[in-house]
């Protein structure tokens, strides 16, 4: 495989932007014509303009990238971790999944349980990646989870009088 005709990451991302722009543009038709009364810009005027600019700019990048055999602005290669394989993919994936878990769980299990588990897990990822010692990482992360969760409750609820959900069952 020479790779000369293979689209690179930059081109694929530009293509994703073009597809997202198409989804955006599909809604513009519901907003009426760009100029109401023939002269005054209406609700669809700016969206039409923005959509056109995005097609032009993303199209320009896509064509430039496809003309090059390799991306001229490829993302820098990720550094290697001693304890987490493929850290450039696994790291953000773990954090994104944990954050989704927090967002899904906050209203169901309440702040204390959700934030405790979330901060423990995030701290565990970073501690384990840094030291590689699982038991030590678990202990430090558990303490971190308790401290940060308590801090959050004190600041949000007690000091600033904001609402956070509690266990509702």
């Amino acid at each position: 495989m020479t790779g000369s005709a293979r689209p690179n990451g930059q081109a694929i991302f530009a293509l994703v932007l073009l597809m997202a722009n198409t989804v955006y543009a599909s809604q513009i038709f519901k907003l009426g014509v760009p100029f109401s009364n023939g002269v005054e810009p209406g609700a669809s005027f700016l969206p039409v303009l923005l959509s056109a600019v995005l097609y032009l700019a993303a199209g320009r990048i896509l064509i430039a990238e496809l003309r090059n055999s390799r991306s001229v602005e490829a993302p820098a290669a990720d550094a290697k971790s001693d304890h987490v394989p493929a850290i450039g993919i696994v790291g953000p994936l773990v954090i994104a999944i944990l954050t989704m878990g927090f967002a899904a769980g906050l209203e169901r299990v309440g702040y204390i349980a959700a934030a405790g588990a979330y901060t423990f897990a995030v701290a565990l990822y970073f501690n384990f990646e840094g030291g590689g010692r699982l038991m030590r990482s678990v202990i430090v992360s558990a303490m971190t989870g308790v401290l940060i969760t308590s801090f959050g409750w004190l600041f949000f609820v007690k000091l600033f009088d904001l609402y956070l959900p509690t266990w509702s069952y």
Partner: peptide, 16 residues
């Protein structure tokens, strides 16, 4: 400690 730092940022961001 990065665990403390990013655990803190994660929780403050989302709960905030």
């Amino acid at each position: 400690n990065r665990g403390v730092l990013y655990g803190f940022i994660a929780m403050i961001s989302m709960a905030g």
